[in-house]
């Protein structure tokens, strides 16, 4: 039954994949190679001189207990952002799926936050929780809770997580909603006739059928929380108080662009490259086995 169309000759297939290969080479492999090369040097900021130091940039990083601590911070941050953006999105999608009237408006409203750039979202949340004029912190004050993310590391972490996850809920909602629409009605109806209630149907039929989408979103969200949350953290906490919200990618920025230490910054990029590569391999090896296509 399996029909395969094969190309005769080799130049046409090569030509067809050439654009993709070229784009990957120019925009991904070349910069990645540059980062690896640069991580072996300590250059001065102006590029006047550069000293080969082998792996000592890496040694310097791994002997810094604050750098090592930032791995832990990054792990906590990424897990929280991923959970906080996926679970509410799934919940909202399931509810939107059951709507009969006005679902168009509801859907559009839910997708809106995705249009807000991360840095703007950061400012928005910062204003709401501002210790002096913030609306939320003002109400919390009336409830007897003294909100101060400027000094309280836990509160600062909570705030950057919520601000990072908020816009992301829309993105995840979109995917979950589309996937829910693709669940065959007949299967659900059959289960309903057999007496399965809503949650039973959800756990045993809908969720397994959603698993490819959920897996895709897991990978995408983890990568998002690693790299694209920079703007939010920069706007709200700048990595503080103390080091409580200094994630790996923020340190790459501050060493490279604040400290002009390009060697260390490059070395950190290389480490990040490996961490994300490793994470993606783990996800595909272990999580994907539980996914039903």
């Amino acid at each position: 039954m399996d029909q395969r169309v094969t190309f005769r000759g080799w130049w046409l297939p090569v030509l067809l994949i050439a654009p993709q290969v070229l784009v990957s080479a120019i925009f991904f492999f070349y910069p990645a190679g540059q980062a690896i090369w640069q991580s072996l040097f300590i250059p001065d900021p102006f590029g006047l001189s550069s000293r080969f130091v082998g792996l000592s940039n890496f040694e310097f990083l791994f002997s810094d207990k604050f750098y090592l601590a930032s791995f832990g911070t990054t792990a906590i941050f990424s897990i929280l952002v991923t959970l906080c953006s996926m679970i509410p999105a799934l919940l909202l999608a399931v509810m939107a799926d059951r709507l009969i009237k006005g679902s168009g408006v509801y859907r559009t409203m839910l997708i809106w936050p995705y249009a807000v750039a991360p840095a703007i979202a950061g400012v928005l949340w910062l204003f709401m929780f501002n210790t002096r004029v913030g609306v939320v912190s003002w109400y919390l004050g009336h409830l007897g809770y003294d909100w101060n993310h400027v000094l309280n590391g836990g509160e600062a972490m909570g705030l950057v997580v919520v601000a990072s996850a908020w816009g992301r809920i829309s993105y995840n909602f979109l995917f979950f909603f589309a996937a829910l629409q693709a669940v065959p009605r007949s299967v659900i109806e059959a289960a309903a006739i057999d007496g399965a209630r809503f949650w039973k149907r959800f756990w045993t039929i809908v969720l397994p059928l959603l698993s490819p989408t959920a897996f895709f979103l897991l990978v995408v969200n983890v990568i998002y929380s690693f790299f694209e949350t920079f703007g939010v953290i920069h706007m709200i906490t700048s990595g503080g108080p103390q080091q409580s919200t200094t994630v790996l990618v923020y340190k790459v920025y501050s060493d490279g662009f604040v400290g002009q230490d390009l060697g260390s910054s490059a070395a950190q990029s290389v480490i990040l490259l490996f961490v994300v590569g490793l994470l993606t391999i783990v996800q595909f090896k272990f999580v994907e086995k539980r996914v039903h296509y």
Binding site: S238, S254, G259
Partner: peptide
């Protein structure tokens, strides 16, 4: 600039 960042972090440790 970065050393100031470190000092800021440490000072926050005192204030907290």
């Amino acid at each position: 600039d970065q050393i100031r960042g470190i000092i800021d972090e440490e000072l926050e440790g005192i204030w907290a």
